[in-house]
Nucleic acid binder design. Structure first.
Lengths: 149, 149
DNA sequence: ACTATTTTTGTCGTGTACGATATAATCTTA
DNA sequence: TAAGATTATATCGTACACGACAAAAATAGT
C-alpha cells in the first residue's frame, strides 16, 4: 500500500501548495481589498479589457456558479462593471472601472513577491510552470466539462 | 506589466491544477462515499492508526477549524472514531473503525488512476513531486502559522 | 410561425478553507 | 496554591468551488 502513503503522493503537495499560495497572497491582496480568486478575475480583465462571464470562466476554469458571486463582489467594490449585450441579451460583458484600472499599478509588484517568498530558484520556478501547464492541459482535455466550454 | 499576464504566472496553473485534481478524484471517491479532503484524513490514518486532531492537522497543513467538521463527517459515516485522552482531557485521539480499515483495499488503486488520467510521464511526475515538496517546505517554513505547530 | 433545443447566466445547497474567537484542561510562576 | 499563560480542540462568520437546477434569450427544425 506504499502508493497510499502521503509522502508518495503528488496530488497532496499540489493541494497543500495551492492553499499555501493563497495564504502568501492574502496579506498583499488585503491592501487592495480583494481575495486571490478575485485577483485572478482582475488579472484577465487587465489583460483583455472587456470579456463575457463565460470567457472569464474559460480562462480561469471556473463555472458561473462560482464566478457570478465573485464578480458581484468586485462590482460592490466598484472595480468592475456589468453590461448586458444589446445584440444578444443573454450575454453579460464585464469591464473595468477607472478605479479597477488604477489598481493594476499597485498590483504589479505582487507576483514577484510570491516568487521570492517561495525561495525557489528561477530555474525551478520555470520547470514547475512548464510541468504544471502540461498537467493542466492534459487534465483539462479530459476533465473540463463541456458545460463550461 | 508582463508578469501580471495569466500565462506568465506559476500560481494560477497550480491553483487550477489543484482544483482539477479534486475533480478527477471525485468520481473515484464517490464510490467510497467521501470527498478528497476526507480521503486525505483517511490516508494519514491508514498509515498511522491513531493520531490526535492536531497531529493530523500538522500532516495535512490544516487547522482544527477545517479539520473538526471534516472529521465529524467521517465519524457520521462510521469510518473513524473519537476518543478523548485519559491523561490529558484536552486531547482527542482519532482512529479507524473496522469499516474504515476495510476501505483501504478499495482505495489502493486510486492514486494510480490519477497519474494515468494526468497523461504525464513517470519522469515528469517525479520532477513535479520533487519541486512541489521543495516549494511546500520553503513556503511552510515562512507561512505555516505557529498556532498550527 | 411554433415547438424543441441550445446557450448564457444565475440561484441554491453542500463541503471545504481560514481568520477570529471561545472553552476547557494543563502548566507556570510568583 | 491561586492567578495568569499556554495548549488542544471547537465554533462562528465569510468566501470560495461545484453539482444540480432554473430562467430567459436565441437558434434550429419542421
Amino acid at each position: 500500500m506504499d502508493h497510499l502513503k502521503l509522502d508518495n503522493q503528488l496530488c497532496f503537495p499540489l493541494y497543500a501548495t495551492s492553499r499555501m499560495i493563497t495564504r502568501i497572497y492574502q496579506p498583499l491582496l488585503e491592501k487592495l481589498d480583494m481575495t486571490y480568486p478575485q485577483f485572478l478575475v482582475m488579472l484577465v480583465l487587465w489583460e483583455h479589457k472587456k470579456l463575457t462571464v463565460g470567457q472569464i470562466g474559460k480562462k480561469l476554469f471556473l463555472n458561473t456558479n462560482t464566478l457570478t458571486p465573485l464578480i458581484n463582489k468586485l462590482i460592490d467594490k466598484k472595480y468592475i462593471l456589468k453590461n448586458r449585450s444589446l445584440e444578444d441579451e443573454r450575454i453579460v460583458f464585464i469591464s473595468m472601472t477607472k478605479a479597477g484600472k488604477e489598481l493594476q499599478k499597485s498590483a504589479s509588484g505582487i507576483p514577484e513577491c510570491i516568487v521570492n517568498a517561495s525561495g525557489m530558484s528561477a530555474d525551478d520556478i520555470q520547470t514547475m510552470k512548464i510541468l504544471m501547464d502540461k498537467f493542466l492541459e492534459n487534465a483539462s482535455r479530459n476533465y473540463y466539462l463541456e458545460s463550461q466550454n
